[in-house]
Design a protein around this nucleic acid. Structure first.
Lengths: 149, 149
DNA sequence: TACTGTTTGATAACAATTATCCGCCAATGT
DNA sequence: ACATTGGCGGATAATTGTTATCAAACAGTA
């Protein structure tokens, strides 16, 4: 198993390449923000990343963190856990079902629970996690957006 | 197939019962907000619901819509599409994988892509939807929160 | 009908995110 | 190495989504 440092070194190298490829300046702030975000497995918020980056660069601005995180998202170096963090989205269907999410227009369509064969878990879950329900999120392009592509 | 009106009538009746059961006053605003939210399959935002309710009750306040939607969420009459709508959550893992989400503390843990057998779709997808990837979201209680229960 | 605890509507407050603007720095060419 | 320049960072205002506050109006009950 690769050590955490080796993994980070690899990631940072890949990051530098990606910057060059995209014509992005590789600044100290940008590198630290990326390294911090990429090394976290707890799906941090921008604020959390800001706090961590501040330990290395006390003068860093929250706006810089946001700007760079958005750049990384566009570049595909990071993903957002959900495309719907901007605003509450309501679902009147309280029965098990799944979602088709358009990554362009953010629309959400339903797939009934029976539309997907029961999901089977192979590996062990983290010790002690109690699953109450699950749903599959299919991400892609809705008919309208796929057509306009 | 039941007509939309019949479905709505049924939902509204169930809604009245639920209000009585919970000691909630059944006001006109509350009923309309519920009916509008429950009849939508497009997973609307509070703003969208507000706009729709205003057609029936022009004097309705946005705050009233929010307050009632939160009441409905607590009562389990509606669900939120994602538990992470408050703030952006970043994911450095750009490979296929799944999430274990704690509904109490909102923490997110990963399950590697191989941890789940490939998901099989039974029914037809909406004509023209182009799936690019999928991930399973397991919702429940993380070890810490399960213990504290 | 009168009473009491909710609910509503208007709006202030708050939180998350984005825009603006200016001084500065990284990348490129010389 | 040096100068040039377009992008970048920092401070902060503005915007957006949501919640808190509070007086007036209303629903549920006697």
């Amino acid at each position: 198993m690769a050590s955490s440092k080796a993994v980070q070194a690899h990631l940072v190298a890949a990051f530098r390449d990606e910057c060059r490829r995209r014509g992005l300046a590789s600044t100290h702030q940008r590198e630290v923000i990326y390294r911090v975000a990429a090394s976290r497995i707890d799906h941090p918020t921008p604020e959390a990343i800001y706090d961590l980056v501040k330990r290395e660069i006390p003068s860093v601005s929250l706006a810089t963190v946001y700007k760079n995180l958005n750049i990384f998202l566009e570049a595909g170096l990071l993903r957002e856990v959900t495309m719907h963090h901007g605003s509450l989205r309501l679902d009147p269907n309280t029965h098990p079902h799944h979602h088709l999410v358009c990554e362009r227009c953010k629309s959400i369509a339903d797939l009934p629970g029976e539309g997907v064969e029961p999901v089977r878990i192979r590996s062990k879950l983290p010790k002690g996690f109690r699953v109450e329900r699950y749903s599959v999120e299919f991400t892609g392009l809705c008919p309208k957006c796929a057509q306009r592509q």
